[in-house]
Design a protein around this nucleic acid. Structure first.
Length: 390
DNA sequence: TTAGGGCTAGGT
DNA sequence: ACCTAGCCCTAA
């Protein structure tokens, strides 16, 4: 396959405008993918298919296939198999079984067949391979489901559990993490490299008004900052304002171009919506924490109760009785000056997460120079930002 | 040591 | 007014 074909395919697969686009037909339209060097493209394809199925609301055995392929690809990359993949696999497997639990009695339908096919054959194979997907959680479900076949009470109980919700939540989480790990597409990183070479290009001064939503982190990749960080950068280190602007610009222009192409291919495509958001909303069933409202409510409650008339006593002077409490009485530490993340740091973080998962300490230790002035907590916070805050 | 809520500066 | 990235605090 031509390098450009590969890049364009990869780039296209990241567009979420049309949920009905699946990776396999697109890839088969191109020449067969040569085995090496294509892991990133393959990963993109698998993630895209998982994402598409999820948008369609399909959580079936095809999804299990995809998750198994994903595991294989990650192993090829020597990446850690993260908890999100294990959980997603487990809950998807349970959900697939649950689909055959619609009759009131276990023996009436195809529950037995499903147990055989999914748990004894498919997961049996995983066990033989000693796959990481076989977790304690999965084994627990296996024994529960086997019991359910014999005992009607357990069968009923499982039937009434909202498995699907869990499956979808974990699959969403998995997608977020994997897209964040992939970073920007080859086409975009190449574009960025070239853009850097001609820093003085007139493009660098062009700006756009629209902001991309958080989800675009996965698509535009290395764009960690909104444009307009010039002030910081004048004084600060190599935060590459031009790189980011250029990156976004190139990505946006490509996006526009692809929209044009897509309109030609599929006239039904609605252009005026924010497709990325639409997709997130339609699929993401994760409950929103709603933190702001809650604290506000608490606050107002607090103030209203504190407005009650009560005897007013002067605030007592703090007594330095316990050395343990000393810390609290001291002036709060001044905030560290804000320092934006460089693309080098982000790249190191991605590599680190691939290798160690969420062991921030290990990641920091394995890139002592890059992360010299970042704490483990900083790494954790940055990763959370890359995922797009929950 | 990590996860997660909350805060703040700086930007739109 | 609202959003985001980065930083802080605290519980487990």
């Amino acid at each position: 396959m031509e390098v450009m074909d590969k890049w364009v395919a990869e780039f296209f697969l990241r567009r979420q405008q049309n949920p009905r686009v699946y990776a396999s037909p697109l890839l088969s339209a191109l020449k067969p993918v040569d085995s090496d060097d294509c892991v990133k493209l393959k990963l993109t394809a698998v993630l895209r298919d998982i994402s598409s199925s999820l948008i369609q609301g399909t959580v079936d055995e095809g999804m299990l296939d995809l998750l198994e392929i994903l595991e294989k690809l990650l192993l090829q990359e020597h990446s850690v198999i993260m908890g999100s993949l294990k959980s997603a696999y487990c809950w998807t497997a349970v959900e697939c079984t649950l689909r055959f639990m619609w009759p009131v009695n276990a023996s009436d339908g195809f529950f037995g067949d499903a147990l055989e096919r999914i748990w004894r054959n498919r997961i049996g194979m995983l066990k033989e391979k000693e796959s990481d997907l076989v977790t304690r959680e999965l084994l627990k479900w296996e024994s529960e489901l086997n019991k359910a076949f014999e005992e009607p009470e357990i069968y009923q109980e499982i039937r009434e559990t909202n498995i699907r919700y869990n499956a979808i939540s974990h699959l969403n989480q998995l997608l977020k993490e994997q897209w964040a790990l992939l970073g920007c597409s080859s086409l975009e990183s190449e574009a960025r490299k070239r853009f850097l070479k001609r820093k003085d290009s007139p493009y660098a001064s062009r700006r756009r008004g629209n902001r991309e939503k958080a989800n675009d982190v996965e698509e535009v990749g290395g764009v960690e900052n909104p444009d307009g960080v010039d002030k910081v950068n004048e004084q600060e280190q190599e935060h590459e304002p031009i790189l980011n602007k250029g990156d976004m610009l190139v990505a946006r222009e490509l996006k526009d171009l692809l929209l044009e192409i897509q309109k030609l291919i599929d006239p039904s495509t609605r252009q005026d919506q924010e497709p990325d958001n639409a997709m997130e909303q339609s699929v993401d069933v994760t409950p929103q924490p709603d933190g702001a409202n809650r604290t506000e409510a608490e606050d107002s409650e607090g103030t209203s109760s504190s407005r009650r008339v009560r005897p007013h006593l002067p605030t007592p002077e703090p007594l330095n009785v316990s050395p343990l409490k000393k810390g609290r009485l001291e002036r709060p530490r001044p905030r560290r000056p804000m320092k934006f993340w460089t693309s080098e740091e982000v790249a190191a973080l991605r590599e680190g997460v691939k290798e160690y998962g969420k062991s921030w300490k290990d990641i920091k230790n394995s890139y002592p120079v890059v992360f010299a002035d970042r704490s483990e907590v900083d790494l954790k916070d940055k990763w959370r930002n890359l995922l797009g805050r929950q």
